[in-house]
């Protein structure tokens, strides 16, 4: 699927961001579609702890991960197996939850980038996500 970049307020100029709509799910609970950054620079996927609370996901406190941001601030996050609906397909991957409400929603490499082929064409204001696996649940 081909997806557009989004323009959002920024300085010195508007930011072009590769967002994809993701519905976060756990059993019968789910979120509304959330614009989530596709980030090849992130090793894992993560979201604010509020998501886990809303979905009733029990995070794994035995395997914390300290996420170090660009400004060197460390945020401790905890993995929780989460169903993500993307483009009508469900995949189940660990999402690391933690931090304050302003922790960004990010789809990182492990394991999402193993499941899809992603091509960024910022010069065309688009990027594409093509599924490499057939075993995902299609809604």
């Amino acid at each position: 699927m081909k997806l557009p970049y989004y323009l959002a307020p920024g300085q010195p100029r508007s930011a072009g961001i590769p967002f994809v709509k993701v519905i976060y799910k756990n059993k019968t609970k789910k979120t509304t579609p959330v614009l989530t950054l596709v980030d090849s620079g992130a090793q894992v996927s993560y979201a604010p702890l509020d998501f886990a609370l809303w979905l009733g996901i029990k995070v794994d406190h035995k395997h914390p991960l300290d996420l170090r941001g660009f400004n060197n601030v460390v945020t401790t996050c905890y993995p929780g197996l989460t169903t993500l609906e993307i483009d009508g397909r469900d995949i189940e991957i660990p999402v690391y939850y933690g931090g304050a409400a302003n922790l960004q929603c990010i789809l990182g490499q492990d394991p999402f980038f193993d499941l899809v082929k992603i091509t960024f064409e910022r010069y065309n204001n688009l990027f594409s996500i093509d599924w490499l696996i057939k075993s995902t649940k299609i809604n």
């Binding site: 959002a8 993560y46 960004q104 990182g108």
Partner: peptide, 30 residues
């Protein structure tokens, strides 16, 4: 202000998309 508050407002509406608000998305990074 909070994600859960917003979810309670929009409930199961399928005609909305949610996004985090930042003053400056130009430094939006992990």
């Amino acid at each position: 202000k909070k994600f859960i508050e917003l979810q309670k407002i929009v409930k199961d509406r399928k005609d909305v998309v949610v996004i985090q608000a930042f003053e400056n998305y130009y430094n939006y990074l992990s």
